[in-house]
């Protein structure tokens, strides 16, 4: 069996996907740290081993993400917006028209045309407001794993509003709320609403008739999915493993 490899070197995690061009055969990730190429190689090696393959089975390695220039094992590179569009369109069976990708340090809104091509896109500027970094910070402050955020917010008993999605200001605001006895569930809920509002301001008045496809690691947070649906008044779809869409897209784009 021959496989194509997509490596998404993001600011929070390095994701590796092995594919036959049609479906994801294997996927794995590791937190981003110095020595990104070595880390990516380790994940790839693990994937090949678990599939019972050797390096000779790899026909092509394509890198994407902020660290794509640091990945010497890749023969090709593609920007993450194109990779995201390609990956999601294929994995959604051609249904996706609007993607909201929440990455470690950025937020992307990607419009697709009926053939899955990038029709338009928006991206936050260098400010990390409303991105994965925001959730990471909150998880650390609340001492709750990111994966438990959704369940935690379901326990919210009152409506609390965060006045800022700025990572710096929100941190001090969350500390103040905790000091006044506001529960972690209320804060988690407020956080999700706050991010959803930030996303909504970027989506603007776009046509959401075909729904919104949320991907990136934070898409695993069910509370965020619900908050986004409430804010956008639209159906929000999430793929089973939304953090691998971009790596898969990279593998099949070039």
């Amino acid at each position: 069996m021959k496989v194509k490899v997509g490596v998404d070197l993001g600011s929070a995690a390095i994701k590796v996907v092995l594919t036959d061009g049609a479906a994801i055969l294997w996927r794995g990730q590791t937190p981003t740290a110095p020595g990104q190429e070595i880390l990516a190689k380790k994940v790839l090696k693990k994937g090949l081993s678990e599939l019972g393959l050797t390096e000779s089975a790899v026909t092509k390695v394509v890198a994407t993400g902020y660290g794509k220039g640091l990945c010497g094992l890749a023969e090709e590179r593609v920007d993450e917006i194109t990779a995201n569009a390609t990956g999601l369109y294929r994995l959604s069976q051609g249904q996706g028209r609007l993607i909201v990708n929440i990455g470690g340090q950025d937020l992307k809104i990607i419009h697709l045309d009926e053939r899955g091509r990038v029709a338009d896109f928006k991206m936050n500027d260098k400010c990390a407001a409303g991105t994965g970094r925001f959730f990471e910070l909150a998880a650390r402050l609340l001492d709750v794993p990111l994966a438990d955020f959704g369940a935690l917010s379901e326990k919210a008993s009152s409506v609390v509003t965060l006045n800022s999605t700025c990572v710096v200001f929100a941190e001090s605001e969350m500390v103040s709320l905790m000091a006044t006895g506001v529960t972690a569930g209320d804060i988690a809920s407020a956080l999700q609403t706050s991010v959803a509002r930030r996303v909504a301001s970027l989506v603007g008045s776009a046509n959401l008739g075909a729904g919104v496809w949320l991907d990136g690691g934070p898409a695993l947070n069910k509370g965020l999915v619900k908050a986004l649906a409430d804010e956008l008044l639209a159906e929000v779809f999430v793929l089973p493993e939304p953090q691998y869409t971009v790596a898969f897209g990279a593998a099949i784009t070039v």
């Binding site: 902020y66 920007d79 917006i81 194109t82 950025d106 091509r117 990038v118 029709a119 896109f121 991206m123």
Partner: peptide, 9 residues
């Protein structure tokens, strides 16, 4: 990233 995606489009 934005410029690369724009070029691609």
């Amino acid at each position: 990233t934005r410029l690369e995606a724009f070029g691609q489009s």
